[in-house]
Write a protein that binds this DNA or RNA. Structure first.
Lengths: 209, 209
DNA sequence: TAGATTGTTAATCGATTAACAATC
DNA sequence: TAGATTGTTAATCGATTAACAATC
């Protein structure tokens, strides 16, 4: 695998996890082969786009037949570096951080929260699941020692940028932020946002006043 | 206001909430005027794009000066129909639904959860905050009586499509789904997804294996 | 007035789609 | 072989950006 081809459009990369998700469902249901047309119908994406997207990375299909579900799934996992467990730091042990850590939909899917940090002296020492909340002061040490590359930010908006700065300085390369502000980071660092409020506001435009 | 101009690109509409968010911050900090250049710098968007986006809806600025923060904020709120409280139905009273209902970042911002539904007989009758969990059987009646237009889905993937079907049949016009599947709904219904796993998988592509 | 910034047009850029030869 | 579907090219479509006259 030619490691992250930097010339692949981000929008193409962003669709790969959706393809993978469908392939997981197909694999579970016992399907062995799928065409770009069928996959497209499930995802609301044109078959041509799926074929084009995949062609950035190689030739995975067979004319007349389609794609082998297990094989394509394996390939996508490799491309996305999901052939390994990812350890994740969580910043913020409030309601939201707690929900993220405990709900654990992530843990079962290859992203394990291995350290939790909070500013508040009250929260330090508490356990969330089986992970103790540690002081923000320890963050750089822990992140470096464990060589963590991913972090989740779940602190209030007014502390999010500072959290990001510390994370980046400690070597974090990817941040998933639940804070409703744009984070400024070097462009060697990936950032994605989760913001239900923005999503709701996007929809009300289309709803009758 | 010419009600939802249907010919405005969705990607333009999707940026309006971001503009609004910045304007809220600016207003709080006491700024009275802002140029497209300054706003763009905050958001990582080119000034030309901001001006173009806004020009779909009217002329809100003044040459030589920029935009009046409070005025533009008001206009965007109107365009997005955020000049009112929105009542929202929540489907799913598990860990996730509970976290969404209690965390309440939404309530303070104009989206109030007014009814919670769950399948499980055990959960029915429980209170989350001050809202009782009701049976799914009551959903159509409650949604119709209260004329709810928005709903949040926080049930497992295998129940999400059924939940969406019931919601749509009950008159819901916008769905925010936390379930990791694509929902099939009539195109008169808006759907947005919140999926931290997909966001993480998008980032690992760029990280060293 | 001089300087700044808008709103808008036209040019550029990039993403999506249609079409089809290759081939299983 | 006949039918189906890929991978890829070229055409289309749509979004972003640069540039500038208008004007505060």
């Amino acid at each position: 695998m030619p490691s992250p081809l930097s010339n692949i459009p981000a929008i193409v990369v962003a669709r790969l996890p959706l393809y993978l998700r469908s392939l997981n469902i197909l694999a579970e249901s016992g399907s062995t082969v799928i065409s770009s047309a069928e996959l497209g119908a499930r995802l609301g994406i044109t078959p041509a786009q799926i074929r084009k997207d995949l062609s950035f990375f190689g030739e995975f299909g067979k004319q007349g037949t389609g794609y082998d579900v297990l094989y394509l799934r394996e390939q996508l996992k490799n491309i996305l570096h999901l052939d390994q467990q990812w350890s994740v730091a969580l910043v913020g042990a409030g309601d939201l951080g707690r929900a993220i850590a405990q709900h654990g939909g992530l843990g079962e899917r290859g992203f394990r929260i291995v350290a939790i940090f909070d500013q508040s002296t009250e929260k330090i020492g508490e356990q969330i699941g089986d992970i103790p909340v540690e002081s923000m002061d320890l963050l750089p040490i822990v992140v470096r020692r464990r060589q963590l590359q991913l972090a989740i930010i779940a602190v209030p908006a007014n502390r999010a940028q500072r959290a990001a700065d510390v994370l980046v300085a400690s070597g974090i390369k990817g941040i998933l932020s639940y804070a409703p502000i744009r984070l400024h980071v070097p462009d060697t660092v990936q950032v994605r946002y989760i913001d239900p409020l923005i999503a709701l506001q996007e929809m009300t435009y289309y709803l009758g006043g």
